[in-house]
Every structure is written in structure tokens, then in C-alpha cells.
Amino acid sequence: MKLDQVSIDKSQYKAVVIGGSAGSFQIITKILSEINPKFDLPIFMALHRLKHVRNGFIEALALKSNKIIAEPEDKEQIKRGMVYLAPANYHMYIELGNKIALSTEEMLNNSRPSIDLTFDTASYVYKNKIIGIILSGANKDGAWGMKKLKERGGLTIIQDPKDCTIDTMPTAALNITKIDLVLNPDNIVKFLNSLV
């Protein structure tokens, strides 16, 4: 489906969850720098990152960001308009009661943070009121989480594999679940800003 053909009730959405890996840094910074500062849904980001490097990543993302971006502490209250980045070497779960929980459980798809687990827990809490976006990446993490998100009525978006540095991740999602929108980076930003 093309962006201008979308006829969805955009007011129903309460949260956005984004998964990315190799090749996604550029589009993440693009989203953060071009998103309308008034965008007030919480955004949860599970991005693959070096597990032993705790510092630097968030600072790099914050440089040109229009939004406040933070690595949550365990059981942190979710606030509107915030961007939450899964900390290095932790899984990030969305809990009932509007909280974020962290976990050091086993890696999944060789990843901690696991995109699947953030998508699964977020869609469990937000049901059909969530938007899931899978960006460029070199493994299949996120595909199962996207499937769960779709089953619970969420809206599924992938970065157009043609525009990805590495398209394994969005393609894996496309292969196992129905994707509502396949968008290039400009249109991902345009879509998010249309929610404001």
C-alpha cells in the first residue's frame, strides 16, 4: 500500500515501537531530527548495539534529535512524547501499568536487546493501538515480534527493502506477516508526522 492510499484512523494510536540493526543508524537519526517536536506518542526503540558499550550511543542519537531520548531504568514510568532506547545488554519490556521493565535473560536471535521481545511485550500492552516499524538489519530479529504485533491488531510498517543498506530484517518480517506499509525513509517520517 502506498502512503497516500492509507485510510486509517490515526487518532487510535498510543505508541510506536521501532526495531533496527545494521544500517539503521542513519534512518534513526533522520527520524529523530525530522520528527515534529510536538509528536507526543512514546517511541520505544530496540536497536542492536555493542553489548559492552554503555555510553556514547544515546549521546550520538541525541545530537540532532527533536525529541528527548533516554535509556530507561527498570520500572520507569512511560511518559508521552519520550523516546526510549533499550540499554546495552538488556532486553526492554513494556509492562502493564504504563511501565518499562528491563531483563538480562538469554539472548534471542543472538541479540540482547531483542527486537522480538520489545515488539511482543509492547503489542501485548497496547494491543491495536501500536505502530511497529522494522528498519534495515542483517538478521531476522523483529520478524516474530512484528507477527505478534499484527495479530494483536497493530499497524505494521517496514523500511522498503530496496532502500535498506541490509534488507534481511524487513524482508524476514514481510515473509511471515502481513505488512501494512512499505515505506522509504522520507515517507516513514512523513507518516509519523501525519499522526501529530
Binding site: A101, E105, T121
Partner: peptide
């Protein structure tokens, strides 16, 4: 116990 991780276990 925290719900998400307990359910996962």
C-alpha cells in the same frame, strides 16, 4: 514477580 519476564519464563 514482574509480569513480562515471569510470563516469558
Amino acid at each position: 514477580y514482574a509480569m513480562s519476564s515471569f510470563k516469558r519464563r
